[in-house]
């Protein structure tokens, strides 16, 4: 690990301002992803700004009837919150499907959104990776791509976003709140937060340098049957091959977002009009233009079947 200086920030605005002022600075929250990447030389911050003491660890009701989740709320506490379990069970389910108990105790709401991909070529500093070293190429294309993207990928990068939590938040139409180095704040709909790789896979979201996530807000509860189905290589403690976040209303309408298939949580609102026609129709619209590799073409079928399983379970839950 490269040496770095360290400070504990006292306010969100001071943290953002310090991040813009000190070259090579990064925020550290739970640290479960950042430290891992620092150990292998993928991340090499010169300065760490510890944002754990910023009093951003509460869950409060909003004036609109939703909830504001502080950026430092731990994944465990978010998943266990009685209001989340009752009104946004999809979010609890997604969080609990991710990582291990130890990691969820550390990982934060803000940090989870900023997780880097688990593409093995990104992790291996001997391999070409446009995300780690722009312009060096992509070893995943033509390599072992079983875990990689089937939609929204580019000739530069076929990595996927690893978060489960973000997939649920995408289905729930969450909003990301931030503070910028000049002290101004903004609200970013989660649909616009993560970006597709294009020619700049090293850019993964719309945050400006030094911009700090302070909270995620959830709109008022939408009810319905909420399910999170994660398909992976072992029953627990593994990243998704495919995951399906689904909300089905009593009238059969609903929402669906996918994890494990793209550089960001994948939702195509137009596909949701196909709910009455069933899983095949929904999956076809969701994955329109999909370009899987030989190694991950199975995901196209897996998405359809996981949607079918989710729709069936929702029907059963309603009955």
């Amino acid at each position: 690990m490269k040496p770095f200086t360290y400070e504990r920030a006292t306010t969100p605005a001071a943290a953002a301002s310090a991040a813009a002022r000190v070259p090579g600075a990064k925020f550290i929250a739970g640290g479960t992803n950042l430290l891992d990447l620092m150990k292998i030389g993928v991340e090499e911050p010169a300065h760490l700004i510890d944002v754990n003491g910023l009093d951003l660890d509460t869950i409060e009701p909003t004036d609109e009837g939703g909830l504001r989740l502080g950026a430092m709320v731990r994944n465990t506490d978010l998943a266990a919150d009685a209001r989340i379990r009752r009104d946004y069970p999809l979010l609890s389910r997604a969080l609990l499907a991710g990582a291990s108990g130890q990691l969820r105790n550390k990982a934060t709401t803000g940090g989870n959104l900023l997780q880097r991909t688990r593409c093995p070529y990104f992790y291996d500093t001997n391999q070409a990776c446009n995300k780690r070293l722009p312009g060096s190429g992509c070893a995943a294309i033509g390599g072992f791509s079983r875990q990689h993207a089937i939609v929204g990928a580019s000739k530069s990068c076929i990595a996927v976003h690893p978060s489960d939590m973000a997939v649920a938040m995408r289905a729930l139409d969450a909003t990301v709140e931030t503070v910028r180095p000049d002290g101004s704040t903004r609200r970013i709909p989660i649909a616009d937060f993560h970006t597709l790789p294009g020619n700049t896979p090293h850019i993964e979201n719309v945050l400006a340098p030094g911009e700090l996530i302070t909270a995620v807000t959830l709109p008022r509860p939408v009810g319905g049957t909420q399910l999170y189905h994660k398909v992976r290589d072992r029953a627990s403690y593994a990243f998704a091959l495919v995951s399906v976040a689904m909300i089905v209303q009593p009238d059969g309408s609903g929402r669906v977002a996918l994890g494990g298939v793209a550089h960001k949580p994948w939702r195509v609102e137009a596909a949701e009009t196909e709910f009455p026609k069933g899983a095949k129709a929904v999956a076809t619209r969701l994955l329109a233009g999909a370009q899987p590799t030989e190694g991950n073409a199975f995901k196209v079928t897996l998405v359809e079947r996981t949607i079918a399983a989710s729709l069936a379970e929702a029907k059963e839950a309603k009955a």
Partner: peptide, 26 residues
């Protein structure tokens, strides 16, 4: 040393964590 095995699990302020994935100064 990468948070994948759990051998380093300790209890900090009542919660179990992977001690390999957190800095002492934090």
């Amino acid at each position: 040393d990468h948070g994948q095995c759990g051998a380093c699990t300790v209890i900090v302020d009542g919660r179990r964590i992977n001690s390999c994935l957190t800095l002492a100064v934090m």
